[in-house]
């Protein structure tokens, strides 16, 4: 698998990373190297292994349906670039 320039541009856009046009070529080569490294896994026959999302030998932890958090609007918005009356404030996004 190999990424062309358009794909690299789209991936960068989806990740909200600004990449200058003259960097796309080089970035694509780097990404291709990473993909090539991971593709080595294809050499292993996994046809008899069920897909798994974790190798941890444990079960999903469940919580009881209890309110244990909240009432901290100032803390939640403390790191926001802008806030007002405990709302996050962002540039206008209207459909």
């Amino acid at each position: 698998m190999s990424l062309d320039k358009d794909t690299v541009r789209r991936v960068a856009r989806l990740a909200r990373i600004e990449v200058a046009e003259d960097r796309l070529e080089a970035l694509g080569q780097e990404l291709n190297q990473i993909i090539g490294f991971v593709e080595q896994l294809d050499e292993v026959d996994t046809s008899s292994v069920a897909p798994m999302t974790s190798v941890a030998k444990q079960k999903l932890r469940w919580r009881a349906d209890e309110v244990t958090s909240g009432g901290q609007a100032e803390k939640v918005t403390a790191n926001a670039p802008a806030s007002d009356m405990n709302f996050f404030v962002v540039p206008k996004v209207v459909e």
Binding site: R63, V67, T68, S69, G70, A73, V76, T77, N86, F87
Partner: peptide, 15 residues
Amino acid sequence: GASTEFGADPNSQVS
């Protein structure tokens, strides 16, 4: 563990 109650003050039910 944040509450789901409807109509609370902004960001008061956010973990």
